[in-house]
Design a protein around this nucleic acid. Structure first.
Length: 707
DNA sequence: GTGACCGGCACCTGA
DNA sequence: TGCCGGTCAC
């Protein structure tokens, strides 16, 4: 017999779990046990209320969270509950009714990279300069239109001034949509948009979906966008049994369309809402909670709430001040060593940063000190070239209409089908109005190709044919792809890039496929869908005895014993882009709040005085967030003096070539060269310990002359 | 026509 | 830093 569902819950949690029906808003601060509450609620609905599991839909923020939830309700609930992210849920619904939105069940999902590539080509086809009309920019504009549920026509109406960037974008939008239609493909926005359209259509028809779910539960509701809002509304409309859970202070995806207003307005949108507040934090020690709350209190647009903890006060937050990025990484790595020596397991440690670019120095430092580490996200595994290439072969096998992939690998590895030939083939397929693969399969088309390309295309077709025979087993299919393309040899011949082992990535992909075959067995199609919807965190191995390095965004929903946050500098965290937008700074502050509240025992904050950032390297001043920390959570007051120092020039030391110097982080060295003068003066110094030369700004490099 | 090579440029967060 | 686009040798 399983444990009683209500066991171990506090009164507020228990109240939320037993809410009988109708709209429920759980305002849950960080670390207040919201996942547990929502999980138990599912169990309670099934066990006590007799709701069939298959008629419950629970939406989580990551696939990993979905897996965790399935695992946690398993003791009480038989299989069948719908648990997944918005995107996965929509994909699942769309796959079951593809004809309603003009797709087949084999539709593939177009990722951001493919999308940009496609846009680039469309822009160039118009004869426009892609450095002026940037695919990246167009991608963002189109995404925004889709989120506002505007098709190409509506977009064209909105921007009527001829020749303007947006007007041009609207024209590309139309072509882009046609191309996706022809390719039986959907992008990320489409999954939600079409999902909503399907449910809305269905609501006027046979109501298969509109009446399907008796209870809908949504986690991380503060990060839903307009479409997601309408979707949960539509899916829960017939019963009104909608439970959402979230924390307005942790809304950090505005740039992706998330509207914090959804959670702030919930009780107005859904009259009769029952509100439950979870305010007891079970996670963090007093100092951490205090620090987080004092910082977030500075935000104006928020709902006041008071978290409390019964945990001990805990140590003050650590703050370290570093000369530059490398010194910072080493200092954090050394602290991690001390934590590990002190008995913390590496998997209970994490380092967070604002942008992925910061991972490099950290990874190097950790590796240098021999600390096992894993970078979560960043240049994601599935974005690596070799993985994308092999995936392209797989995608074509599942969806032969996917031209983007055909163009990607028709000549990969090189088989004599150059740019010109591809261009001609594409023109031909456009003239025939058929998929590229079909065109190149025509013998009369191949006869036209002169040179080695003819044989190359034939080879490509034979590989494709063979892969198509292995659709039932993903691992087998990839094995065939790798063998028949000779991809390993090709990968080895690519620039011998020291730190990436392409062979290893190939192995990992095959291993991943074979793990999928065993666990799910959905064939190559299922595998493609699963991985195209994976987030970086989904691939994260939390049980590995390694310290995790990730962005603050990726850290959402996770917790660790000890956490370091690096790069606390104006312009980085808060990020410079945030200054340009209304409310941008408040979102950065929420991001900092999320970072702090991930930690149970201890937090280390770090900044560096000098950093190489996009373009010019330069001195950095301390993040305002450091100054917003209350005195009582800090070790002593001396750090404030340090912060104020930052923008003042330290006394200008006069150095010359050949001077012997000592650097606070790098040790002893000799000046090799003096570049420039004044505040921008730089010194090239050869350091003895590492034998490396470094160029440091004199005014920030904490150098001392040595006799 | 193909493919290797090189220089310029831009990069925040991500399903 | 990696990717794109241009250039050049075969």
């Amino acid at each position: 017999m399983s444990q009683p569902i209500l066991e171990g819950l506090n009164p507020a949690q228990s109240d939320a779990v037993q809410h009988p029906g109708g709209p429920l808003l759980i305002l849950a601060g960080a670390g207040t046990g919201k996942t547990r509450t929502i999980t138990r609620r599912v169990a309670w609905l099934v066990e006590s209320e007799g709701v069939p599991p298959s008629r419950i839909l629970a939406i989580t923020f990551t696939n990993k969270a979905a897996r965790e939830m399935r695992h946690r309700i398993a003791p009480w609930v038989p299989d069948g509950t719908w648990v997944g992210t918005f995107h996965a849920t929509c994909a699942r619904i769309l796959r079951m009714n593809p004809e309603m939105i003009g797709r087949t069940a084999n539709f593939t999902i177009c990722d951001t990279q493919d999308k940009r590539g496609l846009l680039r080509r469309l822009i160039k086809d118009m004869g426009w300069d892609t450095t002026v009309y940037k695919p990246r920019k167009f991608e963002a504009i189109i995404s925004d239109w889709k989120r506002r549920q505007m098709g190409p026509d509506a977009a064209a109406d909105e921007v009527s001034t001829y020749g303007l960037e947006e007007e041009r974008c609207a024209r590309i939008y139309e072509k882009y949509e046609k191309s996706l239609d022809a390719q039986d493909s959907l992008d990320f926005d489409d999954l939600l948009l079409r999902g909503l359209q399907l449910v809305a259509l269905d609501a006027q028809g046979d109501r298969k979906w509109a009446d399907r779910f008796l209870h809908v539960l949504v986690d991380e509701y503060q990060d839903t966008n307009e479409i997601q809002y309408q979707l949960v509304r539509a899916l829960s409309g017939s019963t009104g049994n909608l439970s959402v859970c979230g924390d307005p202070d942790q809304s950090i995806y505005r740039w992706r369309g998330a509207d914090i207003g959804n959670i702030l307005r919930f009780e107005d949108d859904f009259p009769g809402t029952k509100i439950v507040r979870l305010e007891q934090n079970y996670r963090s020690v007093g100092t951490i909670l205090k620090a987080a709350q004092e910082v977030i209190r500075r935000n104006v647009s928020r709902k006041e709430k008071d978290l409390f903890t019964e945990r001990e006060e805990g140590p003050p937050l650590g703050i370290i001040d570093n000369a530059d990025e490398e010194a910072e990484a080493m200092a954090v790595a050394r602290q991690a060593t001390r934590w590990i020596d002190g008995g913390t397991s590496p998997d209970e440690l994490a380092v967070f940063y604002r942008t992925n670019a910061s991972s490099r120095a950290l990874e190097a430092a950790f590796t240098r000190l021999g600390i096992p580490n894993q970078v979560v996200g960043g240049q994601a595994f599935f974005e690596r070239r070799e993985v994308k290439d092999l995936m392209a072969y797989a995608r074509i096998a599942v969806n032969p209409r996917e031209n983007v992939s055909v163009e990607r690998v028709l000549n990969v590895p090189p088989r004599g089908v150059g740019k010109k030939t591809v261009e001609r083939l594409r023109a031909k397929s456009e003239a025939l109005d058929e998929p590229l693969l079909k065109t190149i399969a025509r013998s009369e088309v191949r006869e036209d190709i002169r040179g080695p390309g003819r044989k190359g295309v034939l080879h490509f077709l034979s590989i494709q044919g063979e892969v198509a025979d292995h659709l039932d087993n993903a691992a087998e299919a990839f094995q065939v792809i790798v063998d028949r393309t000779g991809y390993r040899n090709f990968a080895n011949s690519l620039e011998a890039n020291e730190d990436v082992d392409r062979g290893e990535n190939i192995d990992e992909l095959i291993a991943f496929a074979s793990e999928y075959d065993e666990r799910v067995g959905g064939g190559l199609r299922g595998f493609l869908e699963e991985i195209s919807l994976l987030t970086d965190v989904d691939r994260w191995d939390e049980s590995a005895a390694r310290i995790s390095l990730m962005t603050v965004h990726a850290a959402k929903g996770l917790e660790f014993d000890r956490v370091a946050v690096v790069g606390l500098e104006e312009g980085l965290f808060p990020h410079a882009r945030a200054f340009e937008e209304d409310g941008g700074l408040e979102e950065e502050r929420r991001l900092f709040y999320v970072a702090l509240t991930r930690a149970r025992e201890e937090v280390l904050l770090s900044r560096s005085r000098f950093r190489f950032r996009t373009g010019a390297p330069g001195p950095q001043s301390a993040s305002r967030f450091l100054e917003e920390l209350p005195d009582e959570v800090l070790p002593d007051q001396s750090f404030r003096a340090q912060l104020e120092d930052t923008n003042e020039e330290s006394e200008e030391a006069e150095f010359r070539e050949g001077d012997l110097v000592t650097h606070r982080a790098f040790g002893d060295g000799t000046v090799q060269q003096v570049l420039g003068t004044g505040i921008n003066q730089r010194l090239v110094i050869l350091f003895e310990e590492t034998g490396e030369e470094r160029t440091l700004l004199t005014s920030w490099s904490m150098l001392e002359a040595r006799a």
